[in-house]
Computed example of a mutant assay.
Amino acid sequence: MSRKQWTGWSAPRAGAEQAEQHYLIEPRHLAGGGDLRHVTEFLRASGWKDSSPRGGPFVFDSPDNQVCIGYDPHTEPGGWTVSGKAAGAQPSWHATFGRQTPVEIVAGVTDALTRPRSAHAPNAWAPLQQQDWTAERGEDHVFSAVHPGRDTWLQYRPAEHGQALWWAGARTDHGQTWDAVFTSTTPLYLIEAFATALADPQPVMRPREHVPSTSRIRTTSVSVLPSQLSAWQQARIAAARAATWARFATTGTRTPSAATSPYATARGRRR
């Protein structure tokens, strides 16, 4: 374990704030769930409607009401659900992420849902190949890409009982920690977005009390001021706001209502 000052942020002023100890964790897919606001605040800033019941699980609806994203820690197995309605040639689809799926990886999919689709043909395997994941072909034409550490995978399973699916997961020395399942009808660009976030070699940050207990991770201790951490979080939200309003300006569509406006004051924000 190494220790250093977090580079890229200005040095703290003496006596101004008390620095807090955080850890950069790699590989990111073993970092644990993380702060839910990494996903939810980005959705809110992107004009999604917070339909969460009071005291209940998170529920966010897209501006066109075609996609619903939820998080429920109380049910079994619990975690994230993302569902899309049928629209034109696109059938309905569904994806789930376990509670310990890192929010940065979940955000690969949820962030992509807030942006216009790219014109390029999606390739879910390319981001993994670029990071030296191993391509494998198993029985029954099951295709997989496996992390060099052999602890994480993305797999495509052809029709089984009439339903094909994409399946990803991660394990440590304590067993499997999370999995993600996508129905075969999930738009391929979302699978590519998920794979891109999954294969990203950049570490992710966790507070001291949320570092997973496993020998499979590498950690770097960093000193972070609360204001620095807040500034990083606000930069992500500001980017979502700017992209949302730029999209409304260029498409000429109706701007968000007061309830869904990314500039609206958020109520009942939970961690």
Rank of each mutant, 00 (worst) to 15 (best):
V39Q: 02
S52I: 10
D35K: 00
H22D: 05
S184R: 12
W93G: 03
T185H: 12
A240P: 02
T185R: 13
S144F: 03
D140R: 13
Q5W: 14
Q129F: 04
R271E: 13
E104V: 07
T220K: 09
A249T: 01
D132F: 10
T172G: 08
R13P: 06
D140N: 12
A107F: 00
V39Y: 00
R247A: 15
A145R: 05
A112Y: 01
G175E: 03
K85I: 09
Q233V: 04
P12Q: 08
P122R: 04
R247D: 10
G162I: 10
R44H: 11
A264N: 04
Q131L: 09
R115P: 00
D179Q: 15
R270G: 10
A89Y: 06
S221C: 09
A126L: 09
P122F: 09
S92P: 04
T260F: 10
R267P: 02
E192A: 08
S10F: 11
S118D: 09
I237S: 02
F58G: 04
R28F: 10
D72R: 07
A258H: 02
L225E: 10
L188E: 08
G32E: 00
P207C: 07
E17W: 08
W80P: 01
P91H: 08
S184N: 12
A195L: 03
S213A: 15
A45Q: 02
S144L: 00
P226S: 08
V142A: 07
P73C: 05
P201A: 11
E139P: 05
T185Q: 13
F60Y: 15
Q234D: 11
Q130S: 13
S215G: 05
N123K: 09
P53L: 08
D72L: 07
V82D: 01
T183P: 01
L190Y: 03
W166Y: 14
T186K: 00
E192Y: 07
Q90F: 08
A231G: 06
G79V: 07
L198F: 03
R206V: 08
H74N: 15
G8A: 15
A168Q: 00
R218Q: 04
T250A: 15
S46W: 07
I217F: 02
L113F: 06
A31N: 03
W48L: 05
Q131M: 09
G34V: 05
Q228L: 04
W153M: 14
S261M: 03
R206G: 01
R117N: 04
Q18I: 14
W245P: 00
T253K: 14
Q176C: 07
G169M: 01
A45R: 00
A199N: 04
Q131E: 12
H74A: 15
A266Q: 11
V39G: 02
Q18D: 15
V109D: 02
Y156W: 11
H120S: 13
W245G: 00
P148N: 12
A258F: 06
P102Q: 15
W93R: 03
G162Y: 11
H210N: 15
R236K: 12
A121M: 09
G252E: 09
